[in-house]
């Protein structure tokens, strides 16, 4: 059985048709709504590359069913900037050289964005714990920590 799914994504009401209710929110975003920023890697909730905000909280979009996301408010990496200018956390990822292959970047940006919303001045321990669910296989973690610290600094 397929259904119509309506969600608010990055502030915009969007509809996808012929959705199998068991498919993942990640699949709906990437393959039906033209938003491939959220990445598809482990598909098991281990790597965090599909991280989005669902109802204002970070989740792994690969583990959320499309039927479960009906009516939800979603923010993806495409929604962080305003289309013209990158968000502060995106700018500091560039400035700090926190991007290597780039595959983990969208998920890390969402998680770091969420962290700084909740805690504008996080300790290093808090940053590490908050980012624990986002794996960078280039292991570029030090630069990523720099980027988060820099974003916190710029917001002050």
């Amino acid at each position: 059985m397929t259904i119509r799914v309506t969600m608010t994504v990055n502030g915009e009401p969007l509809t996808a048709d012929d959705v199998w209710e068991g498919e993942s929110l990640l699949h709906v975003l990437r393959e039906r709504l033209g938003l491939p920023g959220s990445k598809n890697a482990c598909e098991q909730g281990e790597c965090g590359s599909c991280t989005v905000l669902l109802g204002g909280e970070v989740v792994c979009a690969c583990l959320v069913g499309a039927g479960q996301a009906e009516g939800a408010d979603i923010v993806t990496v495409e929604g962080l900037g305003d289309g013209e200018q990158l968000a502060t956390i995106q700018q500091t990822f560039v400035a700090a050289g926190a991007v290597q292959c780039g595959f983990c970047t969208p998920g890390l940006l969402i998680t770091a964005f969420d962290l700084l919303n909740r805690d504008p001045d996080p300790s290093d321990a808090t940053i590490r714990e908050a980012l624990a669910g986002n794996l960078c296989r280039c292991t570029g973690y030090e630069k990523i920590l720099d980027a988060v610290r820099l974003a916190a600094e710029r917001a002050r």
Binding site: G45, G48, T51, V58, V59, V64, T111, A130, A132, G133
Partner: peptide, 9 residues
């Protein structure tokens, strides 16, 4: 337990 993403779900 787990990560922030998983604890939120």
């Amino acid at each position: 337990g787990a990560s922030g993403q998983l604890r939120n779900m």
